[in-house]
């Protein structure tokens, strides 16, 4: 096998991994403060891709502004979802949060399917990132390199903001013991709402970045979110770095599988999940829940 094929598939794997990492990071952050799994996270990613496509198609607003505007707008919408829907489920079995966000995912996906059908809407690669460079051992399309680099930077920045800043310390305190954090004067309800919004914004950011790679497709979210669930089961949600690393790692594993045994590529993450459950039920980075 040639180096080109191997490195090409590994790059594709890293791109998948970039989206897994952004989404599983968001899921882990939401799980930390709300104790629920946001099934609609994939739908927000899909809406992010469509929003970028819509801005370009109807308003002639290009990729770079969309990369800022779409996460902002969807982040605000996410805060609305938290206030209107999830807040009412506080104190109930967290399974209700999963079911409510599942319903929201169906609503979003069903609506977009009704309007746009099941086929994708093509979205162009931004001009500045068209073409590619020859690295000697492989040809690197610029846009793909950008997706991997941008997602690593965003994941790292999010991790640093949570683990190393004063605001992040508040978030960690609210994650660990919300009642105590609030008794010390922190506005925990507001913190939870904003955190949910930021996590949704991460999903929307991933969606905008995905549009030129996968097109905007109503089904892209649910296909992705189930794999991300497996990623989260593998990594455990106790550690944010674990969520990020599992995302990239499993993307790479998928890429490698495509090289060596293509038919298993779309189940390899689930197979790894089954193996992890057998060997280390708490997940690779997780504490026993």
């Amino acid at each position: 096998m040639s180096v080109q094929v191997l490195s090409g598939q590994l790059l594709l794997g890293l791109i998948n991994g970039a989206f897994y990492a952004l989404l599983s990071l968001g899921l882990a952050v939401i799980f930390g403060v709300l104790g629920i799994i946001n099934f609609a996270h994939g739908a927000f990613y899909m809406v992010g891709a469509f929003a970028a496509w819509g801005l370009a198609t109807y308003l002639d607003i290009g990729y770079w502004p969309a990369l800022v505007l779409v996460p902002l707008a969807l982040g605000l919408a996410g805060m609305g979802v938290e206030r209107l829907m999830l807040k009412r489920l506080a104190g109930l079995d967290p399974l209700y949060g999963l079911l409510a966000t599942f319903g929201l995912a169906l609503v979003l996906e069903g609506t977009f399917r009704q309007v746009y059908g099941s086929s994708g809407q093509p979205y162009p690669v931004p001009e500045a990132l068209q073409g590619g460079v020859n690295l000697g051992f492989m040809f690197l399309p610029l846009y793909r390199g950008w997706v991997v680099a941008a997602s690593i930077v965003v994941c790292l920045a999010t991790w640093l903001a949570i683990e190393r800043t004063a605001l992040g310390a508040r978030l960690r305190a609210a994650t660990e013991r919300p009642d105590m954090a609030q008794a010390l004067g922190l506005n925990v309800p507001l913190l939870v709402t904003v955190t949910f919004g930021v996590a949704v914004a991460l999903a929307a950011f991933a969606g905008v970045m995905a549009a030129p790679v996968y097109q905007a497709n109503p089904l892209m979210g649910s296909n992705l979110i189930i794999v991300v669930f497996a990623v989260v089961v593998i990594g455990g949600m106790g550690s944010l770095s674990g969520a990020i690393l599992s995302g990239y790692g499993l993307g790479l594993a998928e890429g490698l599988t495509k090289v060596f045994y293509p038919p298993a590529a779309n189940i390899v993450v689930f197979v790894i999940m089954a193996l992890v459950l057998l060997v280390r039920p708490a997940g690779l980075f997780g504490r026993v829940n």
Partner: peptide, 18 residues
Amino acid sequence: GIFASLSVAENLALPPRA
């Protein structure tokens, strides 16, 4: 009510100065 995921300095600096 000490937070395990925060350092001593972070625990100390946590509450807003009201």
